[in-house]
């Protein structure tokens, strides 16, 4: 089937089988920042943003279902050379080690902060509990999301990436 969707702001026409998982379609389109870590919708490393405000595990959606929708992946977070505050904060707080969960974790956090711009530590842990990390023990990921929340709330400066 032919599908048309937007990925990171640019329109893509993809040819897929109905059974092609969205994550495979995204990766086959050259955007390999979105990873695959399980078959049971458990790990969340494939998390992408659907239509701006919704996080989905892209292994649990068929590519054909993305017809007419807008997908944002980790590759769409930075504005040119300027990192998104979440990317900057993950780096600053040592919120990643092997990096495999990082794109999904950042996308999940991105959606979390849209629904709750100033989350408590407990709310961050709750909100990211659909995403597994084997390296960091989550503590620095939580700190990174807290830093990003602050950066995003600063009136000028860091929030000027919009």
């Amino acid at each position: 089937m032919e599908i048309t969707l937007k990925i990171n702001g640019s329109e893509k026409k993809l040819s897929v089988e109905p059974r092609t998982l969205l994550v495979h379609a995204i990766r086959d389109a050259g955007l390999t920042g979105t990873h695959i870590g399980c078959d049971s919708s458990s790990c969340g490393v494939c998390t992408v943003v659907l239509d701006g405000k919704t996080a989905v595990k892209s292994c649990t959606m068929f590519a054909v279902q993305a017809e007419g929708h807008e997908i944002t992946t980790i590759e769409g977070m930075a504005q040119g050379d300027k990192l998104h505050p979440l990317q900057q904060a993950f780096h600053d707080q040592h919120g990643l080690q092997c990096g495999y969960c990082t794109p999904g974790m950042i996308m999940a956090a991105h959606v979390l902060l849209q629904h709750n711009p100033n989350p408590t530590e407990e709310e961050i842990r709750f909100g990211l509990s659909g995403n597994l990390c084997r390296c960091t023990g989550y503590q620095n990921i939580v700190k990174a999301v807290q830093q990003a929340a602050q950066m995003l709330q600063q009136p000028a400066g860091a929030a000027a990436d919009d």
């Binding site: 590759e75 990192l83 990643l96 990096g99």
Partner: peptide
Amino acid sequence: DARFIVGKG
């Protein structure tokens, strides 16, 4: 980190 945080691992 530079490559991992932008999805370029």
